[in-house]
Amino acid sequence: MFLLPAAIFFIAFFILPMGRLFIVGGSGSRGWSAYAAILTDAVYFNALLATLGVAAATTVTTLLVSGVAGVFLQRHPFPGNRLLVSLLTLPLAFPGVVIGFMVIMLAGRQGLIGTLTQALGGDRLVFAYSLAGLFMGYVYFSIPRTLLTIMAAAEKLDPRLEEAARSLGASTWRVVRDVILPGLKPALISSGAICFATAVGAFGTAFTLATRIDVLPMVIYTEFTLSANIAMAAALSFVLGAVTWLVLALARSAAGSTVAAAG
């Protein structure tokens, strides 16, 4: 009974529209083969590859950065620690457009990096309006999100395990490899998956940086507005939704099973 309002809202505005989207995707000039176009059509397939590539690079980089910083901040309560955590998680809910603008501030035509490289006597380095800029934006976007998850997981690591490993003669790197990383694994998998999924589906950052970056969300947007090819846009976005959902589902079962195995 308490569930009813949410259920009605959700069915009316999500389940039914998603079903409709699926039908619309098959109603264009290509018919149902529109759903295969993402693999058969070179333009879409390349966009898919670029999207997955950027997302994968973002995920790996973010996990490395957040992993090192997160464990460090969790372990060392030095003065200013709290402030650092605050600053690092501040951009938590910045929208994609603003992230795009932050990238422009750093690597755009009037950006800091360009100014610095020029001052150092080199060429003015500008990469905001390319895949590299998009990558930078996604990393910016993902760090605050993953950091909190990793810090929470690092807090739960049992220090006695590390002490045990040390007592058996393990070096710092062995401890990291054999104790800390396995302990963080579920958190790394789940936050990595969220990071990947957001990078695959995000649109605002790419939109702000340039319309020339051919990642899948941009292609969908172009199909929808410029080419008015609504069927293709629907088919592509349905596939995109399915891919992200799949990644998250896989990650959850992987993280879940590791948790179970560790317990």
Partner: peptide, 23 residues
Amino acid sequence: FEELLMLPVAVPGLATALALIAS
């Protein structure tokens, strides 16, 4: 049902928006 309700976060906003427009 809980899993289902989480879907709009997993599915890209573009897809949700297009679905709403189509319907």
